[in-house]
Design a protein around this nucleic acid. Structure first.
Lengths: 183, 183
DNA sequence: GTATACATGTAAACGGTTACATGATTCT
DNA sequence: AGAATCATGTAACCGTTTACATGTATAC
């Protein structure tokens, strides 16, 4: 389980409320770990009970009050212990790949719009990553350790999207070829 | 959920028992969808109840009897309906990326052996994919539709591993650079 | 007036993981 | 004698998803 640890990293980078964390998980952290607000609130309560994080109530006017969490010493050392544990190989769940193999038993060209929609999504994501890279890391030679590590993770996302786009083009070419030969 | 559909695809490609399916999920199908035998047996029973698959008892001597499942008409049409549904974007769970960002709050060089172990795993997987490609698709111009679709999915796996290897080299270079500057 | 953003929760259902269980056969 | 392969299952637990719930404030 890494949701606790992803939350710890986010709170170490910047303290925040459950709501703010949920928004971060929709954006930067969500690139490599997704979570809904329900999960986040539940885990935050457990982490507070365990002393990994500390909450501070912040009253706001014009807006609901919020609880701002920050990482506590116990959380920091738990993160360190987790870092030294070996990573289990990630379990793969690639629905589109299942569909592509399933297409052999239906009309393969019916998948073309689906794959094109996927392709557009990945192209849009790549564009957002590249914009974010220029905004957040304009001068790669002037980054501290934290930023360099954030940047290398972002580069991974960028390369993943590039590879995926090229592969989806390959998939589309294959589907079109099968379509032509089915005529 | 796609486990049902992954099982259907596998049974359409080749009927088999729960045990045989579990082995396939450890190999070819496991490239893009993982499942343990417990999950598989549970889902097979549900699918049989729903009429998606049909079982045939096969008595063997020298070995335990087995139930060989094959896809039924209802399963085939369920697969077709699923194919026409839009794919939800996959939820990402990339534990190593969380660790890399977490490394900013610990000694980053402590992650180096971990990343190297990961790198070796991906290199070994790439080698297996390439061997499998040569064995199963020696002549890409002489493939039927089913094989072409299997091949394009395998090419996706190969490109994913290549990209990951290059990225892990990038990560290692970053960690080494941080280590040198920390001296 | 309607939609969106802010802010936090409960409850139920589902899917996946881990541990345990059984029993025969073949290979070393 | 012990390990690995074949073959199928139960039970408990945990994490994730989805639906429901509430209420204020701001923007259009």
């Amino acid at each position: 389980m890494a949701l606790e640890h992803a939350i710890l990293v986010s709170l170490l980078e910047q303290p925040g409320s459950g709501y703010e964390l949920a928004r971060r998980f929709d954006r930067s952290i969500g690139r490599f770990w997704t979570a809904t607000h329900q999960q986040i609130y539940r885990v935050l309560r457990r982490m507070e009970t365990d002393g990994w994080i500390a909450a501070q109530a912040v009253t706001q006017d014009g807006r609901p009050d919020k609880k701002v969490y920050s990482a506590a010493e116990a959380g920091r050392s738990a993160l360190g212990a987790w870092l030294r544990e070996p990573v289990e190989p990630e379990t793969v769940r690639h629905e589109l790949a299942v569909k592509i193999r399933a297409a052999a038993f239906e009309d393969p060209s019916a998948l073309i719009p689906e794959v094109e929609r996927h392709r557009e999504g990945h192209a849009a994501l790549l564009a957002r990553y590249l914009t974010g890279e220029q905004r957040d890391f304009p001068d790669p030679s002037a980054l501290d350790a934290q930023q360099q590590l954030q940047h290398v993770v972002l580069r991974g996302g960028i390369e993943y999207e590039r590879m995926t786009l090229a592969w989806l083009d390959d998939v589309l070419a294959t589907l079109h070829r099968l379509h032509r030969h089915a005529d």
